[in-house]
Amino acid sequence: MSLSSLANTAYQKVFRKTSSFAFGILLGAFVFEIGFDRVSNYAFDYINRGKLYKDVKDKFAAGASEEE
C-alpha cells in the first residue's frame, strides 16, 4: 500500500512532467555519482588498507619527530 502510494507520488512529482523528469535525472546523476564514488573509494581503501599514504603517514611523522 505504502509502496504503491510512493510510486504514485514519484509519478506525480517526477515522471509526469518532462521538466521535472529531466530535473530528476540531473539530480539523480549527482546523487548516484557521489554515492558510487564513496563506495568504490571505500572498496579500494579496504583492499589496500595499511599500504596507502594516509594509513602510514602518522607513522612517518612520529618517526620524524623522534629524530628531531
Binding site: 579500494f44 583492499i47 589496500n48 599500504k51 596507502l52 599514504y53 602510514v56 607513522k59 612517518f60
Partner: peptide, 16 residues
C-alpha cells in the same frame, strides 16, 4: 610483488 594485483596499490612504506 604486493602491488602486482589488478587492484593492489603500491606499498607506500616500501616506496619511501
Amino acid at each position: 610483488w604486493n602491488h602486482s594485483g589488478y587492484l593492489d596499490a603500491l606499498d607506500v612504506t616500501s616506496v619511501r
